[in-house]
């Protein structure tokens, strides 16, 4: 699975136990799978992830993350480059602390969450079909206020 291949580099405070919504965040080791390596490998892409509008509360209270994902989707029959669909799934499986329904819906993100790819609306880039490149910056901003 991606969790064993990809790594995540965050600077989480180990003393933080609540993310502000009353949930306990995962530790760094849990978030990065079995590996805690933070050096990018050749066969990996480095993606900058940023959460805004309060969405960071679901991601260990850290608004910025640098993640490394494989250049090709693992366990795939064809050599496919990772796209936004893969990234959203990867974030849900590896970085999301709690309440997955607050972030994702189906393959995509929940309606009401804006996504910017390199400071451009992801609708212009093909949304879930956008193929990620090394050094891409992906921003998720929640506009939902929950009642």
């Amino acid at each position: 699975m991606a969790a064993t291949v990809a790594t995540v580099m965050t600077t989480m405070n180990p003393e933080v136990t609540s993310n502000g919504l009353g949930y306990v965040g995962k530790t760094e080791v849990e978030a990065s799978g079995s590996s805690s390596t933070i050096v990018k490998k050749e066969e990996e892409l480095e993606i900058l992830i940023e959460f805004g509008g309060g969405l960071h509360l679901l991601f260990s209270q850290k608004p910025k993350h640098t993640i490394h994902i494989p250049c090709q989707i693992p366990q795939s029959d064809l050599p496919e480059a990772p796209d936004m669909r893969y990234l959203v799934r990867w974030l849900k499986e590896n970085l999301l602390s709690e309440r997955p329904e607050m972030f994702g819906e189906g393959d995509s993100v929940r309606p009401g969450i804006l996504v910017l790819i390199n400071d451009a609306d992801w609708e212009l880039e093909g949304e879930l079909e956008y193929l990620l490149k090394d050094g891409d910056e992906v921003v998720f901003i929640s506009t939902l206020h929950g009642g």
């Binding site: 805004g52 509008g53 804006l114 901003i141 506009t143 206020h145 929950g146």
Partner: peptide, 25 residues
């Protein structure tokens, strides 16, 4: 729209928290 406002804040580097969670009170 709230999307436009959120993008304004993003462009100008303003930190916001939109979620207030009154539904869970």
């Amino acid at each position: 729209s709230v999307k436009e406002a959120a993008l304004w804040c993003r462009i100008h580097g303003l930190e916001t928290v939109n979620y207030r969670g009154w539904d869970d009170v």
